[in-house]
Amino acid sequence: MSLLGRFPALAGVDLDVAAGEVVLVQGSNGAGKTTLLRACAGLAAFGSGEAEVLGHDLRKDRRAVRRCIGLLGHATFLYDDLTVADNLTFAARSAGVDRSAAAEAMARLGLDGRLRDVPAGKLSAGQRRRVALAAVVSRRPDLWLLDEPHAGLDAAGRNVLDEIVLDAARAGATVLLASHELDRAAALATRTVTMAGGQVTGGLLVPREPIHVA
């Protein structure tokens, strides 16, 4: 259970996600989607309950969990005075990943041209969103937590994002995806989970070819 003020933001959530799954978390505003993703990252306080992420107890070993996850939230988590390249290099190296991962992420997101040396504070909102996604990619996470990932991206960026999600799942990573863009997100998902009032109220296996873990 996670508390938001005096009221439980999450209650009675029982969710088991396997490697290689892409789970779409859907629900209306305030349903608890963002809190669920933040809880998986160890950013939301637990009142009670248990959570194991990637084999680590989230209460006892948050640091081990966090080294293996990538969270794309509503904020971009960028340092405005650092260039795109500096931001991504810091993201990669803080996850213990070689700095070459930052260069690969920049190339994949189309940031390796003139944007590479531009301070993040001078980018447009859409470009910042793209850099934030690249920061997640550069960490090479085993668990991807994507909160409204399509928001703010242009058509090309959305297509790249979809490819990245599918590639991550094919490589054995787990993806939790909270989105209001249900058509687009459902096309990526192997399973949907519906939330309301901080609880999981429904789930559905998407009838399509499963993504096999490599």
Partner: peptide
Amino acid sequence: VIESDDDARDALRLSGLD
């Protein structure tokens, strides 16, 4: 202050750094 812009402090927590 540089850690408070755009929730960068959350990024520092999520980084997994000691």
